[in-house]
Design a protein around this nucleic acid. Structure first.
Length: 187
DNA sequence: TGCCGGATCCTG
DNA sequence: AGGATCCGGCAA
């Protein structure tokens, strides 16, 4: 039996959101659907740090759409944007915090047949849609693991993409990516 | 109940 | 630069 790295434990997600956003870089995202496994290495993330963060969906409060974001850590928050693209987040911190990390870009590892640069394309390439909203990341369909062989990298910190409406929160450097990686969504 | 705009992507 | 295309959130 080949040894597989363990899934990231609940305690990984139950921490400060910026810390999780940074430590998710380099981790593998795995989706198993109909016996087919797709796998990518996370190279770009964004932190959404709570209801006071005007760029975060949780700033609208607990609604049918955002309830997962206010739920327990280690679950997927998946939503539809612009009527046609899905975006996937990882819920962080304790119940009620309304915090999550958006996965913005992957480096393909296996089972991936299309582009993974940008949150919408990432979901398309991984076969992720709203059916996975609320999925437990400690389950068997969608989960994260450490890479079998970690490589050192530098982290670049920048303002988040597409949140110009968020006042002072638009300028905060809550986007993180692996320096020099060719699969980043934008410079 | 109706309207507005979005954590995007593609085309021209 | 602008259109696609749906739905959540808010005003009325």
């Amino acid at each position: 039996m080949p040894r597989r790295p363990a899934k990231l434990p609940r305690s990984f997600y139950d921490r400060d959101t910026v810390t999780v956003a940074r430590e998710l870089l380099g981790m593998h995202l795995v989706h198993v659907q109909d016996g087919v496994e797709r796998r990518g290495r996370i190279v770009e993330t964004e932190a959404y740090v709570g209801p006071h963060d005007l760029a975060a969906h949780s700033s609208k409060g607990i609604t049918p759409r955002t309830k997962v974001m206010f739920g327990p850590p280690g679950h997927a928050y998946v939503y539809l944007i612009y009527g046609m693209h899905h975006c996937m987040n990882v819920v962080t911190e304790a119940v009620g915090q309304g915090t999550a990390v958006l996965l913005r870009a992957l480096e393909p590892v296996s089972g991936i047949e299309s582009h993974t640069k940008g949150p919408g394309l990432l979901c398309r390439a991984m076969g992720i849609d709203k059916r996975l909203d609320g999925a437990d990341l400690l389950g068997d369909a969608l989960y994260l693991t450490p890479p079998p062989r970690g490589e050192a990298f530098h982290i670049v910190q920048r303002p988040r993409i597409g949140v110009a409406y968020a006042g002072e929160w638009a300028a905060k450097e809550l986007r993180f990516y692996i320096d020099g990686n060719p699969f980043i969504s934008r410079k």
